[in-house]
């Protein structure tokens, strides 16, 4: 039985603070009274990573010094675009500590979607959410966020035949020239960096947010921290035989995962794709979205 997504009573307040940070950033950049995030004219509305072929004069050198990654300023004309959020809702996203000490990957992913929707609304962009179980939802205005919240809270078990996975979802993605941002949120175990890069286009920003649970990030500590000698692993989304692993295998797994994460990061950064890694139950969604509001994410 999959855990339902639940937004804590304080969540909307945290969301407001995130949007407030974005507004404050704009206020500092453009001066009091010019911090409007969407509309006509050439007003500054935010930052995005630099893309291939762009003029180096557009780089915000202050941000470059802080993030060691080139960002360019985004103005309202550019911001008046649509964002596409591709959310992995497969069963594997249910993994994560649900004993009160943490949260599932899907919970963090849902919070990230809510955060992205709030930022998009603040930036005047239209956000389209597409899930790997075939659902789609559009957020045009700030008030649509309540409906989005209900939608996310209603995420249930994927129905047979409807779960297509992020790879397939990426392949089917409807992208238009106005699609200025494509944000992929999931654990990405069934996705290759190449599939993400194929979503890119001139003037389009790609963002990859990889959400993993602690048992996936550090099994030697979490699965074997209690002195277990062997652990039986069961895939949440596969009806296959289980796998019994020991501590040595867990160490080998961690080494392989580290190599894979470094590979993802290396490839994506080389193509100026924004890469974020988050741990369910540990990383606040604000920290993951910090680059969107000029902050410094861990």
């Amino acid at each position: 039985m999959r855990e339902r997504v639940r937004f804590a009573p304080t969540f909307m307040g945290r969301l407001g603070l995130l949007v407030g940070r974005l507004r404050a950033l704009h206020a500092r950049r453009e001066g009091v009274g010019t911090a409007r995030l969407a509309g006509g004219g050439e007003e500054f509305v935010g930052h995005r990573p630099m893309r291939d072929g762009e003029d180096v004069r557009q780089i915000d050198w202050n941000l470059f010094a802080r993030f060691d990654q080139p960002f360019v300023r985004v103005f309202e004309r550019e911001a008046a675009e649509s964002w596409l959020v591709m959310l992995d809702t497969s069963a594997s996203m249910d993994v994560g500590r649900t004993d009160g000490a943490g949260a599932s990957k899907l919970q963090l992913a849902a919070e990230l979607v809510m955060g992205l929707a709030a930022l998009a609304a603040e930036a005047g962009a239209r956000l389209t959410l597409q899930t790997s179980c075939g659902q789609s939802f559009v957020v045009r205005r700030a008030r649509d966020q309540s409906a989005l919240r209900r939608k996310l809270e209603g995420l249930g078990a994927p129905q047979a035949g409807f779960e297509i996975g992020l790879g397939e979802l990426a392949a089917r993605a409807r992208l238009t020239p106005r699609t200025g941002r494509v944000i992929v949120v999931g654990d990405l175990f069934d996705l290759e960096p190449r599939s993400v890069l194929e979503l890119g286009a001139p003037g389009r920003e790609l963002v990859v947010i990889r959400v993993l649970a602690i048992e996936e990030l550090a099994p030697t500590r979490f699965l074997f921290g209690g002195g277990e000698t062997r652990v039986e692993l069961e895939a949440v989304e596969e009806d296959e035989r289980r796998l019994i692993v020991d501590f040595d295998a867990a160490r080998a797994y961690e080494r392989a995962l580290e190599v894979e994460l470094e590979s993802w990061q290396s490839i994506l950064l080389r193509h100026r794709v924004l890469w974020r890694l988050a741990e369910a139950g540990e990383t606040p969604f604000e920290q993951v979205l910090a680059p969107f509001v000029g902050g410094q994410g861990a």
Binding site: A91, S92, M93, D94, V95, K105, D187, F189, D190, L212, A213, E215, E216, P219, L223, E228, T229, R230, V231, E232, L233, E234, A235, V236, E237, E238, E240, R242, L243, I244, V245, D246, D248, A249, A250, A252, Y253, R255, A256, L257, E260
Partner: peptide, 22 residues
């Protein structure tokens, strides 16, 4: 020996590194 059972979403990666030896 009692073996704990855990749900993971990364069994693909586990299989790649641990199946044979485990």
């Amino acid at each position: 020996v009692h073996i704990e059972r855990r749900l993971v979403g990364s069994l693909v990666l586990w299989r790649r590194v641990a199946e044979v030896e485990s």
